[in-house]
Design a protein around this nucleic acid. Structure first.
Lengths: 162, 162
DNA sequence: TACATATGCTTTAAGCTTAAAGCAATTGGA
DNA sequence: TCCAATTGCTTTAAGCTTAAAGCATATGTA
């Protein structure tokens, strides 16, 4: 049981604490991501990245440029181009180029896109609620704060490399 | 600055705590994973999954079957087959089929593979040390424990789905 | 033994993602 | 004005990953 949430290297006698934390972190997020991906595919015929695009646009009703999306979602420009094209073909988003800079393309949700996203988001929230259901609110808050600290630490490392 | 460690949906006004925790979790692990992947490619001409295979074999000197590797690393069987073939061609691992079950293939590190892994692991540890350097040991321990709880919670969700 | 089922691995086809090169539009000096 | 550098997006080529089908071997049962 639970074969696929075992940690890489089995997680046990690994040496350093930071490495053990990392392995556990990657294991958790990979498991969650795979599960979400599978459920989106099975139940809605869509993908997690497409959902991410819709979610970003849902939170920015005035639209986002493709570059904004690429940076926000941590995916490459080319990938955004492809997803936007598909989502537009499906009628979920509309695009226009800005008058002040005609290189830019702004994407916005259509009404159909908003409705579609609402449906996906409801399922997404339910899934996540289940996955986190054994965690107390106190645990969640603590985890949230620690991840903020980790994010800062990672960011500091990146700055240093430049 | 820090553009690529921004959270999906910008992380701010998102509603539910569990969703915010998830977004932050995915953001952290994706950023770390990408950075490791890039450094392995740039500095050693290898990939993170290949490193994961070597690490697993380094921790199991008596060898692992391909199925064991697939489950431990959370990658598909076909993927393991490909990586093993490459690593064997590079001389880093050797394979044999077991006498008791000739369907099984066991992979073990060669001496060259051990040396190669040692080099990669040293860099890997240094990178992780830097990325986590702003986290206190206390923080790391707390994070480690919370991730264990999360993992349990995720596992419980999986069981339920069957 | 015979046969159905299960297991371990491999192949195949398809999709996803990226880096790098390329194109179009803009900006900022000479 | 002109032109180089920059910026935003698109295309291309390559690699990675997976699910599903396929093959070989093993197991259990009659």
């Amino acid at each position: 049981m639970g074969d696929d949430i075992r940690e890489k290297h089995d997680g046990a006698l690994a040496g350093r604490l930071d490495v053990r934390v990392l392995l556990r972190l990657l294991s958790c997020s990979m498991t969650i991501e795979k599960r979400l991906r599978r459920r989106f595919a099975d139940q809605f015929g869509t993908t997690l990245p497409r959902f991410d695009v819709l979610a970003a646009l849902d939170r920015h009703r005035d639209g986002l440029t493709l570059g904004d999306l690429s940076r926000a979602l941590l995916v490459s420009n080319g990938n955004v181009t492809m997803m936007i094209r598909q989502l537009e073909a499906d009628g979920f988003i509309a695009t226009r180029s800005t008058p002040e800079d005609r290189r830019r393309t702004v994407a916005v949700l259509t009404d159909a896109g908003q409705a579609h996203f609402a449906e996906l988001a409801a399922a997404h929230h339910a899934w996540i609620g289940k996955m986190f259901s054994n965690m107390s609110e106190r645990d969640l808050t603590a985890l949230y704060d620690l991840l903020a600290a980790l994010k800062l630490s990672i960011g500091a490392d990146e700055e240093e490399q430049k």
